[in-house]
């Protein structure tokens, strides 16, 4: 079975999905969902711009899936609205042609074949039957298309779900934790696949609890914790800010150095036999030391990991954090 992504275009009639930059593909305004006493999503507002891969990032239980279900009209918001291309999901005619979604791979009857599953979906949205074979080919399920879906592995179910999402050749795609539970090969396939979708000019909204994964696939991030918005900005910006540089310094003249750095606006904390400076890069610290003739024994930039950064940002927003 080929694992390469072939073209996802629907043939010669394929249109280029490059709408005006001004319109938002997905927009949440004050979205709120309450289950009994639990506030799963709280006053959440964000926008997904066309042609971007927007990562929807948050720890498990942050309300990502609930938000996606509300965007897709499956769950009713307690307050607020979620719109797709300015419309509520239920106002879309033949919605699979606008939005393709994969929220859970196992939403298939186990006794139904992949082909039958896609056939009824296609029928429901006036999609020609040959498109079923096309998407089966795209995800590499052609050889098992007539076997019952109950016998598929998780990876295969995931591909069937993606085939369903691509069926209507939609300009917007939504995936909820698409790499969860996949083997490394599957994860790689999925990453390539997202890039492919983005290259075709589609808008992709994909959730994950892994910042490292998102930094590889997304160019925009919507970060939530405990159902509330933490940040919305470009991935590069988010990573840069989140992994803000610190410099580790050792010196026999630590006391003097601390004073000098404080005078230049850097912040200092003691660590082991040295100090860690933040708010200044290593060049500035080195030059500052030279100017004041301070001897340095160590001057090393410290890069925080993405996961640490993510933790520090969503730290107080993590619901089930270990104490």
């Amino acid at each position: 079975m080929t694992r390469d992504c072939q073209s996802m275009a629907a043939g010669p009639h394929h249109k280029h999905h490059r709408p005006d930059k001004g319109d938002f593909m997905i927009e949440a305004k004050g979205l709120t969902k309450r289950y009994g006493d639990t506030l799963a999503v709280n006053d959440l507002s964000f926008q997904v711009r066309p042609g971007t891969v927007t990562g929807f990032l948050g720890p498990n239980g942050a309300g990502k899936s609930t938000t996606m279900r509300m965007i897709l009209g499956l769950d009713k918001p307690t307050r607020g609205t979620a719109t797709v291309k300015g419309k509520h999901y239920h106002e879309l005619k033949q919605p699979l042609r606008t939005v393709g979604a994969l929220l859970e791979a196992r939403w298939v009857h186990p006794n139904r074949s992949a082909r039958s599953h896609l056939t009824w979906l296609a029928k429901a949205n006036g999609i020609p039957k040959r498109r079923v074979d096309e998407v089966l080919d795209i995800v590499g399920l052609t050889s098992v298309a007539n076997k019952r879906a109950g016998g598929y592995s998780l990876g295969m179910s995931q591909r069937l779900g993606i085939a369903g999402a691509l069926l209507g050749d939609p300009e917007i795609l939504m995936f909820d934790e698409p790499v969860n539970g996949l083997d490394p090969e599957g994860i790689l396939w999925m990453r390539k696949f997202m890039h492919r979708l983005a290259d075709e000019g589609r808008t992709v909204f994909v959730s994950s609890h892994l910042l490292s994964e998102m930094s590889l696939t997304a160019n925009e991030l919507v970060v939530i914790g405990k159902g509330e918005l933490v940040a919305q900005r470009s991935t590069a910006d988010f990573v840069a800010r989140a992994t803000e540089q610190a410099v580790r310094v050792r010196s026999p003249q630590l006391a003097l150095l601390k004073d000098v750095i404080a005078g230049e606006g850097g912040t200092v904390r003691d660590e082991d036999d040295g100090i860690v400076v933040s708010g200044m890069d290593s060049e500035s610290v080195g030059e500052l030391a030279a100017k004041h003739s301070i001897v340095l024994h160590e001057l090393s930039p410290q890069l925080g990991s993405l996961e640490q950064a993510f933790m520090s940002l969503t730290g107080d927003a993590v619901e089930y954090a270990t104490q």
Partner: peptide, 8 residues
């Protein structure tokens, strides 16, 4: 859910 996504 697939059904309601296809036909809201």
């Amino acid at each position: 859910k697939s059904t309601f996504l296809a036909v809201p």
